[in-house]
Design a protein around this nucleic acid. Structure first.
Lengths: 225, 225
DNA sequence: CCTACCGATCGGTAGG
DNA sequence: CCTACCGATCGGTAGG
């Protein structure tokens, strides 16, 4: 979640000289003259939504600015380039996914679950992150990473590796106990594909409930679900 | 496959006045002065490759023209718009996929296979179409349909429905016999996702062979593969 | 953050 | 198919 947003590269430059500027209890609603990264989050949300709906290349920074209630040049006050905005969207998506996953795994009771039950938890969290309301960040990460620079793409790959490490553990257990017959690496890739593809067809109005989705996935992947 | 290419809307306009211009045995290698749709196919192939690698919106018609050895304005002699070029790429991809699928299903012996074996055939054909050399057309269809007009998207959806009809049949059989526990519709969507996602990670050099992929998928989806 | 602007690129067309 | 071109849009910046 990283709620105390990471220092914007430009906006926070003056904070080093004035560390008392942001006291914990500062008034939230009043107009502070030249405020900090308050507008950064709406910008990210607008970018995530547009990147998802129209794609990165087909979305102009003007579209994003307008959606966030700004003028055309203003996004570049918060992000040094359109690319940087894309990366920030993806990074926020992966941080959120990792936080949700970690919370689920650290919750009481998880340690007592068997491998199949642990997989179910991971699948459920994954669907929630992917299909939950306002979750455009992860879909953008899944389907627009082609637009990233190589260096940024490698950084994202690290976060993905971190996210998938728990999956590999669980799948190894399932494979050892005979409940999963496919090779672990291929099984992980196929399963991720099955889940990730849901952003292309899932419709909260007409389709199944998330719970039905979890059940179907578990029934599909395991000898007994 | 539709090997005798469909009439280009503009290029063939003069053929109506001169129907003898293209005799069946006309010389293939010699320079015919102002030739017909010969250059249409290289254009489609170049577009498919670039649309896949960079995405539709990030690819300029100039890029495509250059890759096909043409000048910047020439693609519009063959296609009335960039959109039409995208649709032609997708249509060719789906026609090829349907043709491969139909050929496999009509081949001798298919009728005698049980449901699991028939699913294996469908999975194998799918991977071949998706991951075979020079097959950029179907991946473009899978990941760029967002860029289509609504009317074009509905036409593509019809082709996809046609392609998936055989899958639904087989999955219904498997469900009835207890080899597939997940609901058929969700199973189909999850399986398609698992397979389609492979275009994101499959690397013919370092990854598994297509055969290993088929085996892994079958082992993952069915109680016994 | 806004205003005003720049250079580059893009899809598409006329005319041959 | 090529040449030459147009209007529109885009990412980004200076200066406040």
């Amino acid at each position: 979640m990283k709620n105390p947003a990471p220092a914007p590269p430009l906006a926070d430059a003056d904070d080093a000289e004035n560390p008392t500027k942001r006291p914990r209890g500062r008034p939230r609603k009043t107009e502070v003259e030249r405020d900090d990264g308050n507008r950064r989050q709406p910008l990210l949300a607008a970018a995530a939504q547009l990147f998802r709906r129209k794609g990165f290349a087909a979305t102009s920074t003007r579209d994003i600015a307008a959606a966030a209630g700004m003028q055309s040049g203003s996004p570049f006050y918060h992000f040094k380039s359109k690319d940087a905005l894309l990366y920030a969207v993806m990074e926020e998506g992966m941080h959120a996914a990792l936080a949700r996953q970690k919370a689920a795994v650290q919750a009481p009771g998880y340690a007592e679950l068997n491998a199949a039950q642990r997989l179910r938890v991971l699948v459920q969290v994954h669907f929630e992150v992917l299909l939950g309301p306002g979750n455009d960040f992860v879909p953008v990460m899944l389907y627009e990473s082609r637009a990233l620079q190589l260096r940024q793409r490698k950084l994202m790959a690290q976060l993905i590796d971190e996210y998938e490490a728990l999956w590999t553990q669980v799948l190894l257990d399932l494979h050892a106990s005979g409940k999963l017959r496919a090779p672990v690496r291929l099984a992980r890739l196929l399963i991720m594909g099955a889940l990730n593809w849901s952003v292309q067809w899932f419709d909260p109005k007409k389709s199944a409930t998330p719970q039905e989705l979890v059940d179907a996935a578990m029934a599909l992947f395991l000898r007994d679900g």
